[in-house]
Design a protein around this nucleic acid. Structure first.
Length: 138
DNA sequence: GCCAACGTTGGC
DNA sequence: GCCAACGTTGGC
């Protein structure tokens, strides 16, 4: 069971919109990067990921689950990229800010810290557990 | 609004 | 196939 992190600018697609999409969820389109594509292709239905607000907010705000595995992204004219469907699982009682992540030695190796531009990132089991604690779960 | 990091494009 | 130029992303 792998863990992930999905990055989105709230101005484009926010956590509130994801919550509003409910159980049916939505497709996570727009990935145009091969490393990010690789992450999408590795995702299995039922796996969970953090929902991170970039630019504005700069914090992990919630948890989503993969509900449909990789399939072609109809918004990609080149036909090279795909997407998965995700649904909101729960909000974090306390958002975990980028500042807090950077300040925590246990999270120093996170992709978010070292390659912040990657839009879909793998998260280790230890990082997953740590951020859940910082976020007020567990 | 600036700039660093990174990916992509295109000329050779 | 290399590398310079350019565009985009995202933190500050």
């Amino acid at each position: 069971m792998a863990y992930w992190l999905f990055k989105s600018e709230p101005a484009t697609w926010s956590w509130d919109q994801q919550v509003a999409a409910g159980e049916a969820g939505t497709y996570w389109n727009g990935v145009r990067n091969h490393l990010a594509k690789k992450q999408l292709m590795a995702m299995q239905v039922g796996e969970q990921g953090f929902f991170y607000h970039s630019n504005e907010g700069k914090a992990v705000v919630g948890i989503v689950a993969v509900i449909r595995p990789y399939y072609p992204d109809h918004t990609d004219e080149t036909g090279r990229f795909g997407m998965v469907d995700v649904k909101a699982v729960r909000a974090l009682p306390r958002p975990v800010t980028l500042e807090a992540i950077k300040a925590d030695p246990a999270l120093a190796d996170m992709v978010l810290v070292n390659n912040s531009r990657l839009s879909v990132q793998p998260v280790s089991e230890a990082e997953w557990a740590r951020i859940r604690v910082l976020g007020g779960l567990d």
